[in-house]
Design a protein around this nucleic acid. Structure first.
Lengths: 246, 246
DNA sequence: CGACTGGTTGAGTATGGTCAACTTCGGTGG
DNA sequence: CCACCGAAGTTGACCATACTCAACCAGTCG
C-alpha cells in the first residue's frame, strides 16, 4: 500500500489539480486519490494535436491540468469551429447520449490533461461532497460561460468579440484579473475559429483596437491593455466611436 | 401531515416534472416531494414576460414545466441576444459567483415554470442519487447543446442556422424526432435573437428553404419538413446548391 | 372598424469573408 | 552565426452575405 501510494505520488505529485485548493483532486482523501489515480491517465499533448481518441473512448472525462484545449467541430465541407475553450481546472465530460457527436478535443497550446475513468469519477461525485461541489460548480460555470459566448457570437462586431476574447484570456491566465499584459495564448486562426471570424479579420480587428488606443500589441501573442474601462465597455457592447474623438 | 400531502398534491399533481419519468420530481419519494414542494413556487408566465426578478432572487433554480424560456442578454446599446433556450424539463441554475450577470429569463411562449429553493435543490442533489443523475445529465446536455449552438453561430450561414433551429424545435417538441410538422414555437424576432440574425433575415431564410423544397411553411409558425435528409445535411454544414438542380 | 403587433418585401449599404501576394518569425542546418 | 525554409500573420482589392431602414401587408383584439 505504501508502494502504491508512492507510485501515485509519482503521477500526481505537483499536479495542479492536486495542489490548487480550488480544483478537483485537492478535495480527495489519500485513499480516494490513490483510487482515482490508478484509473486515470495523465498525458501531455502538443499544440495542434488532437487528444487521443482511444484515450477518450476509454476515459471520457478529461481534466485540464495546463494549457488550453479546444472543443473542435469540423463541418462536412471543412469549416472548422472551436465551440468551447477549456483551461486549467476545467473538467470536460464527453459522455453524450445517442445522436450527435460531441466534437473532438484538440490542444491549442502545449497542454497537459488527465483523463479519468467514468467509474472513479462518478463514484467521487457520488461519495465526496467537496469533489461533487467542485465538479458541479465547474459545469455551472461552463454553462454560464457558454451563454456569454453565444452572446458574443450572435450579436457582436469583430472588435467587440476580440475585446471579449482578451478579457477571457486575462481571466483565465494565472496572473488573474489585474495584469495589464495578457497572453492571447491561441494562434490567430484558432482565435478566429473560436470567435466566429477569419484570421484576417482577427488581425484587422486587433489593429483596430490598437488604433483606438485600447490595447498595444506586444509581439504576436501578447497584448498590453491601455484602457481597461473602455475595452470592457466595448466588449460589453457599447459601440466604439469609429474615429478618435477629436 | 396528510393535510400537507394533500396541499402538495394540489401544487404538483399533474405537473410534468412529476409525471414524466425522465424529469426531476419523478425521482423523488413522497417525503422529498413534500419537502421540495413546500419550498417551490410554480408560476405561469405570459409570453414576453420576464421571469419575476424577486422570484429568481429568492429561488434561483428554475425548472421548466411547459413552454419555452429564453436566457436573454441585453447589451448596453439595446442589442438583444437570446443566449440559450430552455424547454420542458430543463433546470436552470442561475447562481453565479461574482462578476458577470447571468442574464434574465423571459418567456418566449406562454410558459409554466417552477422555482425551487437552493437549499431543497442542493439537498436533493446531495441525497437522492436519481435526482442527482437527472440534474447532472441535464447540465451535461446543456453544455453539449451550447457547444452545438456556438458552432451554429460561429460558422453557419443564415439558411443553415435556420435548418438547425428547425431540428432543435423538432427534437424538443412533444412528438419528438419523427414528426413531419414542426412548430417553430418562437416569434421571428426571437428566432433572430437566438440564431444571431435579424428578423428580416429569418423571414428570407425560411423562404429560401422553401424555395429549395426542403420545407413548406404552414402558416406563421408551423413548418412541414419535405426533405429531412437534405435539411439535416444543410443544418450540418453541407453547402446547399444555390439553385434548383436542373 | 381601426389600431396594433408581427411579419414580409425591397433597395441600398456595410461588415466581414475570400483570395492572393507579401512579410515576419522561429527554427534548423550548413 | 548566418542563410534558408516553412508556418503564421498581415495587407490589399474585391465581393457576398446579411444588416438597415422604410414601406407595406396580414392577422388579432378591443
Amino acid at each position: 500500500m505504501d508502494n502504491m501510494a508512492l507510485a501515485i505520488a509519482d503521477k500526481c505529485r505537483n499536479c495542479a489539480l492536486r495542489t490548487d485548493d480550488a480544483l478537483i483532486c485537492a478535495q480527495l482523501s489519500t485513499g480516494e486519490l490513490i483510487e482515482l489515480s490508478s484509473h486515470s491517465t495523465p498525458t501531455n499533448v502538443d499544440r495542434k494535436q488532437p487528444v487521443n481518441a482511444r484515450l477518450v473512448d476509454r476515459n471520457p472525462i478529461i481534466a485540464i491540468v495546463e494549457g488550453v484545449i479546444g472543443l473542435q467541430h469540423v463541418l462536412k465541407d471543412g469549416r472548422r469551429s472551436i465551440a468551447a475553450l477549456f483551461w486549467r481546472g476545467d473538467i470536460v465530460d464527453l459522455r453524450r447520449d445517442g445522436e450527435r457527436a460531441p466534437g473532438n478535443l484538440v490542444a491549442l497550446t502545449p497542454a497537459r490533461i488527465c483523463s479519468l475513468s467514468v467509474e472513479s469519477y462518478d463514484k467521487l461525485v457520488r461519495d465526496n461532497p467537496d469533489a461533487r461541489a467542485v465538479a458541479i460548480s465547474n459545469m455551472r460555470e461552463q454553462i454560464h460561460f457558454a451563454a456569454d459566448h453565444s452572446v458574443d457570437l450572435g450579436k457582436k462586431s469583430a472588435p467587440e468579440r476580440l475585446a471579449a476574447f482578451i478579457f477571457e484570456c486575462r481571466r483565465r491566465q494565472l496572473g488573474g484579473d489585474d495584469c495589464q499584459i495578457v497572453d492571447l495564448a491561441l494562434r490567430r486562426s484558432d482565435i478566429a475559429d473560436y470567435m466566429g471570424l477569419q484570421p484576417e479579420t482577427v488581425s484587422r480587428g486587433l489593429k483596430e483596437l490598437e488604433r483606438r488606443e485600447l490595447i498595444a500589441l506586444k509581439g504576436r501573442s501578447k497584448v498590453r491593455i491601455l484602457d481597461a474601462a473602455a475595452l470592457r465597455q466595448l466588449a460589453n457592447g457599447t459601440p466604439g466611436k469609429p474615429a478618435t474623438p477629436a
